[in-house]
Simulated scan of single mutants.
Amino acid sequence: MSGTEGIKTVLHPVADLEKAKAVYTALLGAEPTADSEYYVGYDVEGQHIGLVPGSSEAGPVSYWHVADIEAKLAEVTAAGGTVKEAPKKVGGTRQVATFTDPDGNVLGLLQD
């Protein structure tokens, strides 16, 4: 059984990236560390908060950082979770995946 490094990344689906960026910049008191037309991200107090336009998620998704995304995904599915989105590269060597718990809550895994 492999552990996690905790929740360090939370991604929020947004309809209007520019409007959301203004609100999150005011809330967090910091300028974005990543700012593009397809993603805006903030690094504040050891957490990464991201804004994702056009996402199909109904609400924020918390991403648990793990050393081995494939092993952790196998572990949670063996325990009753269901893969929603298989691991995929999202930049460099970073990979993300999502799964649902038995109640349908969406949870994320992230491996750097």
Score class of each variant (00 low, 15 high):
M1G: 11
M1W: 08
S2W: 13
G3L: 15
G3P: 04
E5G: 05
E5K: 10
G6W: 05
G6V: 03
I7D: 05
T9Q: 11
T9I: 13
V10N: 04
V10Q: 01
V10E: 01
L11N: 08
L11K: 04
P13K: 05
P13W: 05
V14H: 01
V14I: 02
V14L: 03
V14D: 00
V14Y: 03
A15K: 07
A15T: 09
D16L: 08
L17E: 02
E18F: 06
K19H: 11
A20G: 01
K21R: 14
A22K: 09
A22W: 03
A22L: 08
V23G: 11
Y24D: 02
Y24E: 00
T25A: 15
A26C: 11
A26W: 10
L27G: 05
L27Y: 10
L28A: 07
A30H: 09
A30I: 00
P32E: 07
T33G: 15
T33Y: 08
A34S: 10
D35F: 04
D35S: 10
S36H: 06
E37T: 08
Y38K: 09
Y39V: 06
Y39L: 08
Y39D: 00
V40G: 03
V40Y: 03
Y42T: 03
D43A: 15
V44F: 10
E45T: 07
G46Y: 09
G46L: 13
Q47L: 15
H48G: 11
H48P: 02
H48Q: 14
I49H: 04
G50C: 02
G50S: 09
V52T: 11
P53F: 13
P53G: 04
G54K: 04
S55T: 05
S56I: 09
E57L: 11
E57P: 04
A58R: 06
A58N: 04
G59N: 11
G59I: 03
G59F: 08
V61D: 01
Y63V: 00
W64A: 12
W64D: 13
W64C: 06
H65R: 15
H65W: 12
V66C: 10
V66G: 07
A67E: 13
D68V: 01
I69F: 11
E70R: 12
E70G: 08
E70N: 14
K72L: 14
K72C: 12
L73Q: 07
A74P: 05
E75Q: 15
E75R: 07
V76W: 01
T77A: 13
T77M: 04
A78C: 05
A78R: 07
A79M: 12
G81N: 05
G81M: 03
T82M: 12
T82C: 02
T82I: 08
T82V: 14
K84S: 15
E85L: 14
A86Q: 11
P87Y: 13
K88H: 15
K89T: 14
K89F: 15
G91N: 00
G91W: 00
T93H: 09
T93K: 14
R94S: 12
R94Y: 13
Q95L: 15
V96T: 00
V96N: 01
V96P: 00
A97S: 12
A97M: 07
A97Y: 05
T98E: 14
F99P: 05
F99S: 13
T100G: 04
T100Q: 06
D101W: 02
D103P: 00
G104H: 02
N105G: 09
N105Q: 08
N105D: 04
V106M: 00
L107D: 00
G108K: 03
L109C: 06
D112P: 11
